[in-house]
């Protein structure tokens, strides 16, 4: 299965990016082949709806799980429609988070904050 993680820089040793929609890159890691690629997040510079477009980019990579510290409601809707499960990352590096995920140690991410405009949607 492929998993995606928001990254601040193109390194597996860097920390997970705090913002999902505005992360400069996503690491897409294949748990079977153990290959990883960095995908540029072209949504990061958008003025609105960045989370939606970022989720679209990830869904188009054929990813099965998304590891992220937080996620907006709108992006979460895209992930749900795409059958992508969300897991909450910790303060450690991308590499360590992937290892924790493989061992089944990352909890599911279940609370979503409202988007930049979606103040009245769920998650509050």
């Amino acid at each position: 299965m492929k998993v995606a993680i928001p990254a601040d820089s193109k390194s597996m040793d860097s920390k997970v990016c705090a913002s999902f929609g505005r992360a400069p890159y996503f690491v897409v890691y294949d748990t079977e082949t153990k290959d990883s690629v960095f995908v540029e997040n072209t949504a990061a510079s958008g003025t609105g709806g960045a989370g939606i477009r970022a989720a679209q980019i990830i869904a188009d990579q054929g990813v099965g799980a998304m590891l992220t510290p937080r996620c907006g409601q709108n992006a979460a809707d895209v992930f749900r429609s795409a059958d992508i499960k969300l897991y909450r990352t910790n303060d450690h590096s991308i590499k360590e988070n992937i290892e924790a995920f493989v061992k089944g140690e990352l909890p599911l991410l279940e609370d979503f904050h409202a988007g930049f405009h979606g103040r009245n949607r769920g998650g509050l």
Partner: peptide, 12 residues
């Protein structure tokens, strides 16, 4: 306010 800039300030 409570609009989009506030949400952006809150993040992280």
């Amino acid at each position: 306010g409570i609009g989009c800039p506030v949400i952006a300030s809150l993040s992280g």
